[in-house]
Design a protein around this nucleic acid. Structure first.
Lengths: 136, 136
DNA sequence: TAGTTAATGCAACTAAGTCGCATTTAAAAA
DNA sequence: TTTTTAAATGCGACTTAGTTGCATTAACTA
């Protein structure tokens, strides 16, 4: 089915592309080049050229998180992401719609903060002045 | 008053730090190192060391946008940002609260999409499958 | 004012991402 | 099936954001 996806987009089916889509598809979470470079055999130039082609064909999404790295994932239904400042985990948020912004088209939402696990270990008063929203 | 801010945080008051805080304070919008490197006289190592110290002292906020650059701004009241994928403009969103995420502490929100100006020039059908939320 | 410690400038380095070019390969034509 | 050709690949060189070590300088303290 990976082949037919590429055919639909009129992309030449190469072994590098199949490999890359299979890896992204099996992981189903946002990954950086570093995360998967040992899982793929292609050159990094090929990785970036293909990722960028996949993005322009709407097969892949990307965003940047806390580090200086970009994260890529297979595009499924549109969803937001949450990056934890403590453990640096990136979570895909399923059901969270972004707020209303009249006149704007929101394509992506990225939230940062402290995830459920880490929140329990963090003293709230250390966050004085930083809190946008603290959930109950 | 810039001096007293640094005193409160027990930061040594140096000319580089005064210069950097003054520039950030006068611009009052998120800027990258590139944006302001011609406005400051310090070495880039000093810039990054001070920005990072300011961040850990809660004087400055940072986030990454579409490019591979990081953006820094004086921390005022907490607010979200909107990055336009078309014109790459970064807007500070004043009154937009992030959604509820039970158990999580949200410290930052970054939305991407198409800003008010650019939305008028974009054909909605080009966005098939990408739309998270299209405002009325 | 002298002494201590932290901040600075400089240069070298790392890592993400890009680009040009020669070679290979997928797929269409013959 | 073989030939053709345009696109994809690997390689190496490059760019740029950000970091680090080290010698020097400047801010605070006694």
């Amino acid at each position: 089915m990976i082949n037919s996806i590429m055919q639909e987009k009129n992309l030449k089916i190469t072994s590098a592309r199949k490999e890359l889509l299979e890896v992204l598809n099996s992981l189903k979470r946002p990954v950086s080049f570093e995360d998967i470079k040992h899982k793929i055999t292609m050159d990094k130039a090929t990785f970036y050229r293909n990722i960028s082609k996949f993005e322009s064909e709407s097969l892949v999404n990307s965003f940047e998180s806390n580090g200086k790295k970009r994260y890529y994932e297979i595009r499924q239904f549109p969803h937001a992401h949450f990056v934890c400042n403590v453990c640096n985990t990136i979570e895909c948020l399923g059901e969270i719609p972004p707020p209303t912004l009249v006149g704007y088209t929101i394509l992506d939402a990225l939230y940062k903060g402290i995830c459920r696990n880490c929140t329990q270990g963090v003293c709230i008063k250390d966050l004085q002045g930083e809190i946008m929203y603290n959930s109950p």
